[in-house]
């Protein structure tokens, strides 16, 4: 995997600007908007942003003030199902972009796992309610012994 480490990125002026940030926009399960709608909305805002359509939603990059303004607007489309997260690398950065390296990028695995409960989080945000969950306790020794005896007898 040395190719993943030795690649020399050709960074543009924007990539070196400390005020430029990148955010990932996730569309949770059961959302009322599509990736394309979100991207179109970003374009309609008319802000100087780099916008990218992705499988999980979209990615935007630009000056932090513009990015936060765009996120505020885009959340209004579906507040409970649109999630956002900071990203360290700019869109298309050869050190992370799948087009230039092998396998999924590092952060993808975390994203993939968290996406599984994203629908539950959306539900909790949309319809908040108090819930008590029974704490899981280990089985009692007598009961365990009884089960063991039964299993041994039926062997």
């Amino acid at each position: 995997m040395s190719q993943n480490l030795t690649m020399s990125p050709d960074l543009g002026k924007e990539d070196w600007d400390p005020d430029v940030i990148t955010r990932m926009i996730f569309i949770g399960p059961g959302a009322r908007v599509s990736e394309q709608e979100v991207v179109s909305e970003f374009h309609m805002l008319g802000l100087p942003l780099t916008i990218k359509n992705t499988c999980y939603g979209s990615m935007i990059s630009g000056k932090s003030a513009d990015v936060y303004k765009a996120i505020e607007e885009i959340r209004k489309l579906d507040p409970a199902h649109i999630f956002t997260k900071e990203r360290g690398f700019a869109p298309g950065d050869p050190r992370r972009c799948r087009g230039h390296r092998f396998g999924p990028r590092e952060g993808f695995h975390q994203m993939e796992k968290e996406y599984r409960i994203l629908g539950f989080v959306s539900e909790a945000l949309e319809n908040p309610k108090e819930v008590t969950v029974e704490e899981k306790k280990p089985i009692k020794v007598d009961e365990f012994k009884k089960i063991m005896d039964e299993c041994l007898e039926n062997k």
Partner: peptide, 10 residues
């Protein structure tokens, strides 16, 4: 699961 997520968010 759903109930545990409610607890986490709350």
């Amino acid at each position: 699961n759903q109930d545990e997520t409610y607890v986490m968010v709350n």
